[in-house]
Design a protein around this nucleic acid. Structure first.
Length: 566
RNA sequence: GGCGAUGUAGCUCAGCUGGUUAGAGCAUCGGAAUCAUAAUCCGAGUGUCCGGGGUUCAAGUCCCUGCAUCGCUACCA
């Protein structure tokens, strides 16, 4: 029988800017940790993503810079890819929605839905800017609020009175892009007939036992209040053409085609590894665990619209098994904002720091059940007090002591009861932490492996090997052996969260197999021989106040100037 | 307006189906230790669990209400 298959995705980042910490905390780091854990367990798992490259913002950005949308998409695709690489977020495939393969598949999705009676056609009024030569998305229009008469209201909502607005009702509308005056024009669009899926969706969601309560209740509420038909096409030239003769100049709306990118990226992966049909083993297999990591803003799309799209196909696609939606990470108490440039950009971060301290800080305080806060001071504290002082120093003190007194980490064949307890304790930690990883409880898992490092320090202190080395060498020897075992196993346990440091530890112990090959199941197995100690390097250099203050200043400065970096 | 979330030690956060003296890490104070990235370990204190009602033998935990902060409200993606 085939191994259980896992197909893990993270929301496709939009290709009009770099990523910031908020993105990472919501959809990418938790997924990467989950995938790394599964891979340690030898599971059949692939991790799929790519950039979302179509739509108005990319097309406007291109005009601004005087290049083609394709070039903008490629530019940010590469920037984003680099950021992921720098943070050690490793996909099995990272594609892009502007690729031919994706276009074809998306068109097929559309045609299937149409053929199966899930798509309707309506003509409505929209604002059109004759100067820009394009229909304007609601948020690209500004004017006077028809309700409270204040100026500066956007086409979707008035920030002053908070009322939702029909863009065509705005008084004195202006185009945000060129400042011109838009006019009302009729246009025809195709709609996904969501109400037709209501019952199937409700049944399906009710059967999803593993979903988080907040996700489930939110979605059921959404369906209960009544689904509406939803437009899935746009008047735009940058996108996937609607595959109908009568739809000239119209493209599929990005939110319709973007999730299809999960599939096209998987197909691309299959082709790359020379097994072009292998994607079907995942997508057309009802036993596949399909897991979408997303931010909370994305819940309706992944739990209602996307499953509907899948249900409406001819093929029997697997439906999402779980949708671990995370809340938001705030920055120094305020919400991340691209437009206000209140953000820490990954490429900026990577110029100053290693990936692991960030991964650790975010993981230890991940916005799993509610919004959480990233603060530079907290980052510094976590690096200095926890990673460096507790974990790093434990590794360091043990290896140096071992090196000096034994020239290696010794091995002890026979353990007494007390000593065996240490090994058992390691196993207990691994079991608990493994369960936490498997159920996406990253923050608890992270805190618990730090507890294991504390446990190591406590054991070391209690045993006092620096004293015993003079009066009871065997006792010191067994202490160091056991501390070595804690370190060796801790490396495996912490690998999903801080892979770079885990590998460093692994290498310092001169182990033959790779860490990932060794795997989770072997945790608590005794090493069986002494270990040579490689070059002892500092795992986590301290981050001094200066460096942190600079970051805080920089944040204030960039947000005051309000210039978007990218 | 509608829907929802949150409000617990100086800070960041845990507290499941109500039940012993309300927890962790950091910060603070005291002590021990000196193998180690002046790192570690032990001990201590601290809280009208947002306010006000109510249910109950018993509420941080349930109900009502008020206040505060925040998010979503489906053509930004």
């Amino acid at each position: 029988m085939d191994k259980e298959k896992y197909l893990v995705t993270s929301a496709l980042p939009y290709a009009n800017g770099d990523l910031h910490l908020g993105h990472i905390a919501g959809a990418y780091l938790p997924a990467d940790i989950f995938v790394r854990y599964l891979k340690l367990n030898g599971k059949d798992v692939i991790y799929i993503c790519g950039t979302d490259e179509h739509g108005t913002p990319v097309s406007i950005e291109a005009e601004k810079e005087g290049v083609s949308p394709q070039e903008i998409a490629e530019k940010y695709h590469n920037i984003i890819k680099k950021s992921f690489k720098g943070l050690l977020i490793e996909f099995d495939n990272f594609s892009g929605t502007a690729r031919t393969l994706h276009h074809k598949l998306s068109q097929k999705f559309f045609l299937n839905l149409l053929k199966n009676g899930y798509i309707t056609k309506h003509t409505n009024e929209h604002l059109y800017c004759p100067n820009c030569n394009r229909f304007l998305p609601d948020r690209y229009v500004e004017g006077i609020c028809p309700y409270c008469k204040s100026s500066g209201a956007r086409g979707d909502q008035c920030d002053i009175c908070g009322k939702l607005i029909d863009a065509t009702k705005l008084i004195n509308p202006t185009c945000i892009i060129c400042g011109g005056t838009p006019e009302v024009r009729e246009t025809t669009h195709w709609f996904l007939d969501l109400p037709k899926f209501s019952d199937r969706l409700t049944d399906w969601i009710n059967s999803r036992k593993e979903w988080k309560d907040n996700v489930k209740s939110f979605v059921l509420g959404w369906i209960k209040t009544g689904l509406k038909e939803r437009p899935i096409t746009r008047d735009l030239n940058w996108g996937i053409p609607v595959p109908l003769k009568e739809a000239k100049g119209k493209v599929l709306y990005v939110w319709f085609e973007a999730p299809i990118g999960y599939i096209s990226s998987t197909i691309e992966w299959a082709e790359k590894i020379g097994q072009p049909n292998k994607w079907e083993h995942y997508w057309l297999n009802k036993d596949t665990k399909l897991i979408h990591f997303i931010g909370k803003d994305n819940i309706p799309f992944h739990s209602v619209i996307w499953p509907s799209m899948l249900m409406g196909q001819d093929e029997q696609y697997v439906l999402p098994t779980d949708i671990p939606a995370n809340e938001y990470l705030n920055l120094e108490g305020q919400q991340f904002s691209t437009s206000k440039n209140w953000a820490i950009w990954i490429s900026d971060y990577l110029q100053c720091f290693q990936p692991d301290p960030l991964r650790y800080t975010i993981a230890a305080n991940a916005p799993e059940n509610k919004d959480s806060d990233f603060r530079w001071r907290d980052f510094q504290n976590r690096n200095n007090n926890e990673l460096a002082d507790t974990l790093g120093n434990f590794v360091n003190r043990v290896l140096r002591f071992a090196n000096k007194n034994f020239g290696e980490i010794p091995y002890i064949e026979k353990l007494n009861k007390e000593e065996q307890k240490i090994i058992d304790e390691i196993k207990h930690y691994a079991q608990e932490i493994g369960n936490l990883f498997f159920t996406y409880q990253v923050r608890k898992a992270t805190r618990r492996f730090m507890d294991l490092a504390r446990f190591g320090n406590q054991f070391f202190d209690k045993q006092k090997p620096w004293k015993n080395i003079k009066i009871d060498r065997d006792k010191a020897k067994s202490t160091i052996y056991l501390c070595g075992e804690i370190i060796r196993n801790l490396a495996v346990i912490m690998y999903p969260v801080i892979p770079q440091s885990a590998e460093k530890v692994w290498n310092m112990l001169s182990l033959k197999s790779s860490l990932v090959e060794y795997g989770w199941d072997n945790i608590g197995q005794r090493v069986g021989h002494s270990l040579q100690i490689g070059k002892i390097e500092t795992l986590f250099p301290k981050i001094d106040d200066d460096k942190i203050e600079k970051q805080i200043e920089k944040l204030e400065k960039q947000s005051n100037s309000r210039h978007k970096k990218h």
